[in-house]
Simulated assay, not measured.
Amino acid sequence: MEVEGVEEEAGFRDTLLTQAAGLLKELGYTGPLSDEDALLNSCELGATCQKFTALCVWLVSELKAVSYLEEYVSPTEGPADAETFQLEMSGVLNELHCPYLSLTTGNVTSRLFSSQNCLQLLVFLSTELEAARILNLCSAHKSEPADQQDDVLCELQIIRKALELPEILPEIPVTHFIKQLEDKITALSSVVPLSPPLLKTELRPEQWEMLQELHWSMLQEYECRMRMLVTRFDVTVQSFHWSERAKVKGASMNDVFWPIRKALVAESLITIPHLLAAREDYSRIVHTCSDSFCQKTRSSIQKVLMTGHVPDRGGRPNEIEPPMPTWGERKAGGGGHQRWGKRNKRKKK
């Protein structure tokens, strides 16, 4: 069994080596680690190898050039800088939300002394760089007016599908489509009861600017709070991987956790049009424990846990019978004795 495990680990390492070498070639790397043998030798030395750290620094610098990455990695001058290098690389991986637990859990200063972990790091950074370059290239080819037109057309297509209107054709004027849109909304409003709009006044240009600034500041506040909550969530989940049972169930835990984790985005999707579309009933906050709210959501668990008389557990100091418990200094051979009034009362009975 041990031989099979070693062979499986060696096969996985060879696969990572092939992937890392191919990705580096595609990214245009022509440094001293272009050869697979040299790349494997440097990964076996890990963070103490200056050639390996130089390759990581190159990947991070290239990634910063085409993305909004804030963390950085400093070049090393020898094995003495291995600890600093791993600490800085840990910051980069946290910002990139690296999904590989071997690179994000455990002792920070000992993660990059395994050839398999080092190859996994190179593959992750290379794929992130490749994706960032593709996104940057796509955004560079689009001009700003074209982007705005595409966004408007996309919104109109969503509205058309929601209202089941005919397809938007290039030869049909926009005014004609807007007229169809107004007629459809008017017809639906007469059938479906809607509360009045939350915003009833017309805003002046300077008020629109103030609203945009307020919206931007609230988006930043939301993103900051969401990142804090997501970070706390990540730390809590990582603590479950410290147990012995997690070593066996680690893969199953990741299969359940990561689909949920990827759905947690820090950026808010609320825009100004959402504010304009809000109705008055959105401003009425209904408590989740109210009868009207729980009428259709109440379950048997709530009936068991949330109904009935709650027993009194006491604990009020003014109801404790004297004398109060006395605390003495710890003595050799045993601590001080405590005397409770209720216990003495039971003994008398």
Rank of each mutant, 00 (worst) to 15 (best):
A54H: 10
C56P: 05
V60P: 10
S61E: 15
S61H: 13
E62V: 14
K64I: 05
A65V: 15
V66T: 11
V66M: 12
S67A: 14
Y68P: 05
Y72M: 13
S74C: 10
E77H: 09
E77M: 06
D81P: 07
A82N: 05
T84F: 08
T84R: 09
Q86R: 00
M89D: 01
M89I: 03
M89F: 02
N94T: 01
E95H: 10
L96D: 02
H97D: 11
L103T: 14
L103W: 12
L103Q: 13
T104M: 11
T105L: 14
G106K: 10
N107F: 07
N107D: 12
V108S: 05
L112F: 12
S114A: 09
Q120I: 01
L121S: 01
L121K: 00
L122Y: 01
L122G: 03
L125Y: 03
L125F: 04
S126Q: 03
L129D: 03
E130K: 10
A131G: 06
L135S: 12
A146C: 14
D147I: 14
D147N: 13
Q148D: 15
Q149P: 03
V152D: 12
L153T: 12
L153Q: 14
Q157V: 11
Q157T: 11
Q157R: 07
I158P: 04
I158H: 13
I158N: 12
R160W: 08
K161R: 14
L163F: 12
I168K: 13
L169E: 11
E171G: 04
I172Y: 01
P173F: 06
P173H: 11
F177H: 02
I178F: 12
Q180H: 06
E182Q: 04
I185P: 02
T186H: 08
P193W: 02
P193N: 05
P193S: 12
S195V: 03
S195E: 08
L198Q: 11
